[in-house]
Design a protein around this nucleic acid. Sequence first.
DNA 1: AGGTTTGTTCGATAATGTGGTACGAGCCAG
DNA 2: CTGGCTCGTACCACATTATCGAACAAACCT
Lengths: 258, 258
Amino acid sequence: MNDPSVPISSVKRSYEVIDAIRDRGQAGVTELSEALERPKSTIHNHLQTLERLGYVVKTNGKYRLSTRYFHIGRESRATHEVFVHGIETVKRLERESNGHVQLVVEENGMGAILFATHWRDDDYAPATGRLSLSRVHLHTNAPGKAILAELPPERRSSIIDRYGLPGRTEQTITDEQALRAELETVRTQGYAVDRSEMIDGSTGVGAAITTDDHVSGAIAVYGPTAEIAEEVESGEIVSLVREHADTIQTDIVFGSSK
Amino acid sequence: MNDPSVPISSVKRSYEVIDAIRDRGQAGVTELSEALERPKSTIHNHLQTLERLGYVVKTNGKYRLSTRYFHIGRESRATHEVFVHGIETVKRLERESNGHVQLVVEENGMGAILFATHWRDDDYAPATGRLSLSRVHLHTNAPGKAILAELPPERRSSIIDRYGLPGRTEQTITDEQALRAELETVRTQGYAVDRSEMIDGSTGVGAAITTDDHVSGAIAVYGPTAEIAEEVESGEIVSLVREHADTIQTDIVFGSSK
DNA sequence: AGGTTTGTTCGATAATGTGGTACGAGCCAG
DNA sequence: CTGGCTCGTACCACATTATCGAACAAACCT
């Protein structure tokens, strides 16, 4: 009944409630109580707390998440220098490459997408697996490998130890030796290529953005293999991505483009 | 030391930590400990909990909010039918009106902005006052008044009782009788006008979006008074706003435009 | 290297979150 | 309109658990 994985269990409880609401879009006390296997009174306590704090809203009997998460998220995204200084360059890269461009940072050993040109304002990841596509394993995709290659060796190892190398497609690199070799290549050539390792039929090129000897993130261009494979192998997209990564790097250091 | 305003105080504590980090962008244990006037060990407990849960990230000694808030926020925003069915119409309205367009919902008696065309991806509300411009009093602006006018009388009264009628500019309606008269006008004519009531020099027109006898939100067009006052008084913008609100209404009911 | 500041660990106490039960309001069907 | 049901909410005793102080360790800057 006690969970030593987290110091303050009631906070964990609270986020479990948040997650359960998230899964359903909106939900009632009894529904959540059954889903989380806790007494109604406990759930009610949490809901009331979250409501008073303004993180949950009750609309005609059902509870739903308030817009506060969105506003906090918008704010906190802007604390990433790579986002603030890179967003315009990323949008430019989309226009010049005709691919899907994304801006990624490393977070607790996983890749977190800060911005993606393929995002629609009204799309909604239908809650299949809590972390769906917002957090991805670094070794499974181009920007992730680019980041991994630039990380200090001990961090790289600890990440591999922590998460292992789960596969996503047949092409995903799941062997540690193979990955280390690949990362060495990535590091020397300054970019990473993903050939259906993340998603079947999707090819992408990623490049890390490093400042002061520390990785602030990575950008990538993805597209259907059939459409962009040639441009990738010819080096056309590679140099485009690398150039834009360099632009962001200097914009961070010298503080321009803002 | 005990705070009866919220059932579960440790959850409140936790969000205080979140808020404090938010204020600073990133912060250390000691810094937060002093700001919140709690022992370092307590803060550390909370930070560790939040980190394990993935809501906070430690980067070179400093803690910052993770991207999870952003991803949760993006998801939860899409649970609002008025957002999903209205976003395209809102963007169209911007192009047709050349003003700043916003999409607002009511949340706990306050107005919460779901989308605004004047938002930049890289802007960052510099944390002046926790709720800065993401949550506004309904009586101080056009979309707010439009919502207030359509709310059931008892809800309207309870909101006024709860928050009062604080002024923002010289023009803000702070007298309850005056407000009730104004809202009656708004309700009958189907739109609300804000003449420097929210921001000096800014004029705006708002219209509520109602479905099934319940207000799902409101849209508004704002602009510098000098530029758009004429179009507002001539009714040009008014009908534009009202028409687009109607479009969203029918799109919600019949499920199109998605 | 010394001193200062920081992040982290540990343990006892008292506060507090938990969950059973009970109340009341809302809903649907008859 | 009334019965029966389900849902949301309030209460309270107990035991869990968050808190806090102090002491440790690690990093930083003279």
